[in-house]
Simulated scan of single mutants.
Amino acid sequence: MKRIILSAIAFMAIGFANAQNGHFKVGAHAGAVVGDLQESYSANLGIDAAYLWSITDKFSLGATTGFTAYVQKSYNYNTGPYPGYVHKNPNASFVPVAGTAQYSITDNLFLGADLGFAIFTGKKGTSDGGILYQPKFGYQTNKIELFAAYKGITNDGNIASLNIGFNYKF
């Protein structure tokens, strides 16, 4: 599966080499964990970077990466053999490598999506990563974007979050 995703990203990069108009954007996001692992993780925090090429006036394609971390909840044990013991597992962190698309509904509203692979950066042997998908809806100007997104990373299980984010365009 990794080979298919990396081949698709390479194919998109070659196809975009002829495109002349594009822009770079960087930003950050934060959100609440939902789904399978919401009992174990409390929040999703991250930074994003993307380059998009304008295919038409309203449609852009590109590549995106960044860093995203799911913050683990702490558990206090007030009973049992270790009263006052606090258990906290490590955070789950990923580096996404994905293709991205964005369609401008109007001059200020857009729909977007990221699809690719999220590389797990935690303790070896616990995960390799998983398929990343992230639909987005947002507001944009010439220099900024504000967006809401659903981010999912799936492998044997699914970790997901509802996020809000901000991007600055160069």
Rank of each mutant, 00 (worst) to 15 (best):
N155F: 14
L146T: 11
S161G: 05
Y133N: 00
L115K: 02
G122Q: 00
F166G: 03
P81G: 10
Y150C: 10
L45T: 08
N163M: 06
A149V: 07
L45I: 08
I164A: 07
T121V: 09
T64E: 15
P81A: 13
L52V: 08
D107V: 07
N44A: 02
Q134G: 06
L37N: 07
A69H: 11
N167A: 13
S7F: 12
G31P: 03
M1F: 15
I164K: 08
V97A: 14
I5W: 01
Q134P: 01
L146K: 09
S161L: 06
D48R: 14
S54Y: 15
N163A: 07
F137K: 00
T121D: 05
A101W: 11
Y75A: 10
F11G: 13
G35F: 08
G66S: 03
I47F: 08
I105T: 01
L6Y: 14
G80L: 02
I9W: 08
T106F: 13
S40F: 15
G84D: 05
G125W: 07
H23F: 14
G116N: 03
Y70K: 00
M12P: 06
G116T: 04
G22W: 09
G99Q: 08
G15E: 02
N76A: 12
T79P: 06
Y103R: 04
M12C: 10
